[in-house]
């Protein structure tokens, strides 16, 4: 795993594209802070509340949901596109090491993206709004979401020979999961006013918990938890459950991707 990880990081951090994403991300965050937050601070307005972390969270979450699957999708599809995959597969490198190294490198890169927002998160503690616990919960959630999204990209990558088709497929899959779980939660939520809702309640199944259970797998659920003022829905248990869901999805997809890589011939 280590040789592959080192090779991937060397290549990622040398490529212009590798630096372009973090740089653009940092620039967008800085722009947001300069345009919307600093003027308010300078005139002494205390009504900024959650505006700064809100801007940061939205920009970061959006970037992550697009960048992480793309980075994962580029791993194997990129090798195939360059014509370097066959030599790698025929080398004595272990297949598990190949999959794990590529996954780890892509995840570290995504963590770098998450890390870029850290100064803003610290700054936001000073401007009011979200408490430290919520920000911590969101940052951990972003790291685990990055893991799950990178694993999605890696799995998708095993089936493609072109980086961009793999990237589009991976981002599309993530978008589809977000839409599907969101719609499913809405549909299940409407049961509360119907007969089925009453039947579920009678059976001891709360539709509110079903909705929450579906949303745990939604890549945008971190925003809802961060913005929630409800101590139950936005509390530590909700964060823990969401973290576990993301970790479980990421681990399952990683195992699946490793299994695929072990069986790949080319």
């Amino acid at each position: 795993m280590i040789p592959v990880l080192r090779m991937e990081l060397r290549a990622l951090l040398r490529e212009r594209r590798g630096w372009a994403v973090p740089t653009a991300f940092a620039a967008v965050l800085a722009f947001g802070v300069l345009m919307f937050v600093l003027p308010g601070l300078l005139v002494g307005e205390a009504a900024l509340d959650g505006f700064l972390p809100g801007v940061v969270a939205i920009v970061q979450g959006g970037t992550l949901m697009v960048a992480a699957p793309i980075v994962g999708a580029a791993t194997i599809a990129g090798e195939r596109e360059r014509g370097t995959w066959a030599a790698l597969l025929a080398s004595p490198a272990s297949r598990l090491g190949l999959a794990a190294g590529k996954l780890a490198a892509a995840w570290l890169y995504v963590l770098l993206l998450v890390g870029i927002s850290l100064p803003y998160a610290v700054l936001s503690l000073d401007t009011g709004g979200f408490d430290g616990g919520s920000l911590f919960g969101f940052l951990v959630e972003q790291a685990l979401l990055g893991f799950a999204l990178v694993a999605t990209g890696l799995l998708v990558s095993t089936a493609f020979a072109r980086t961009w088709t793999a990237a589009v497929a991976a981002v599309g899959l993530v978008g589809a999961v977000a839409v599907f779980t969101g719609l499913a939660a809405v549909v299940v939520g409407t049961f509360t006013s119907g007969n089925l809702g009453a039947e579920l309640d009678a059976a001891g199944l709360s539709t509110a918990w079903l909705v929450r259970g579906i949303l745990l797998f939604n890549p945008g659920y971190g925003f809802a938890l961060l913005l929630s003022s409800d101590p139950v829905t936005g509390g530590p248990l909700a964060w823990w459950l969401h973290w576990l869901a993301l970790l479980g999805v990421g681990a399952a997809l990683s195992v699946l991707a490793a299994w695929r890589v072990a069986r790949l011939r080319e």
Partner: peptide, 30 residues
């Protein structure tokens, strides 16, 4: 795979690595 060395039709070296890094990777894998 531990007993074969394979050179595919298209040179299997990553263009985004330095020449010595390509060799260093395969040396480490070995």
């Amino acid at each position: 795979r531990r007993r074969i060395g394979y050179l595919p039709e298209r040179a299997g070296v990553r263009p985004d690595l330095l020449a010595w890094e390509v060799l260093d990777f395969f040396a480490e894998v070995a």
